[in-house]
C-alpha cells in the first residue's frame, strides 16, 4: 500500500514536470495515439515536427525507464499476466486503444491529471472505466468458474 502511494507521488512528479515546463497534460493515450498517427502521416509530421519530437522523446523516456527496471529490478519477472491467450490480448488491446482515443483519455490523463484539475468529464470518465473494468473482471471470473477454470 505504501509502495502504491510512493509510486503515485513519483507519477505525480512526472506529470508536474510536463505541465510546468511544457504546458501539457501527461495523458499517455493522447501522447502515444497522436505520435502513432503522426508516424504514419508524413504531412502532419513535417508540419508539426516539434509536436512529433516531444511525444517521441516522452515515449523514449518510458522505454528507457522500462529498460532500467528490467535491468535493475525484478518487477517484470515477478509480474504475472492476467491472460496469455493471444485472442484475449488482441481484443483487449484493441478495446484499450480505440476506447481511450474515443473517450478522450486513459488512466493517466483522466484518472490523475483531469481529476486533479477538477475536470468533471475526467471524474465521469474515471468512474466509467473503473466500473467497466470491475464489470469485465466480474464477468471473466464468472466465466472462469463456469468452465471450471480454463
Amino acid at each position: 500500500m505504501m509502495m502504491a502511494l510512493y509510486g503515485g507521488l513519483i507519477i505525480g512528479l512526472a506529470a508536474v514536470l510536463l505541465m510546468i515546463f511544457n504546458g501539457r497534460i501527461m495523458g499517455i493515450s493522447g501522447i502515444a495515439g497522436t505520435f502513432v498517427n503522426m508516424l504514419f502521416t508524413p504531412k502532419a509530421r513535417t508540419a508539426q515536427s516539434g509536436e512529433f519530437a516531444w511525444r517521441g522523446f516522452f515515449i523514449l523516456g518510458m522505454l528507457l525507464g522500462g529498460i532500467g527496471l528490467s535491468q535493475f529490478t525484478n518487477i517484470f519477472t515477478e509480474a504475472s499476466m492476467v491472460s496469455s491467450n493471444p485472442v484475449v490480448l488482441i481484443v483487449a488491446g484493441l478495446l484499450v486503444g480505440v476506447g481511450t482515443r474515443m473517450g478522450w483519455g486513459c488512466t493517466s490523463g483522466h484518472g490523475i491529471c483531469g481529476i486533479a484539475r477538477f475536470s468533471g468529464r475526467s471524474v465521469m470518465a474515471t468512474i466509467i472505466f473503473i466500473a467497466a473494468g470491475m464489470g469485465a473482471v466480474a464477468v471473466a471470473n464468472a466465466l472462469f468458474n463456469a468452465t471450471g477454470g480454463n
Partner: peptide, 19 residues
C-alpha cells in the same frame, strides 16, 4: 466518449494493462 470509456475499461479488465 462515455462509450469509449466503457470500451477502455473492459479491455483494461481483460488484460490488466492500460496504455
Amino acid at each position: 466518449a462515455k462509450l469509449g470509456a466503457v470500451l477502455f475499461g473492459v479491455g483494461w479488465g481483460m488484460a490488466g494493462f492500460c496504455p
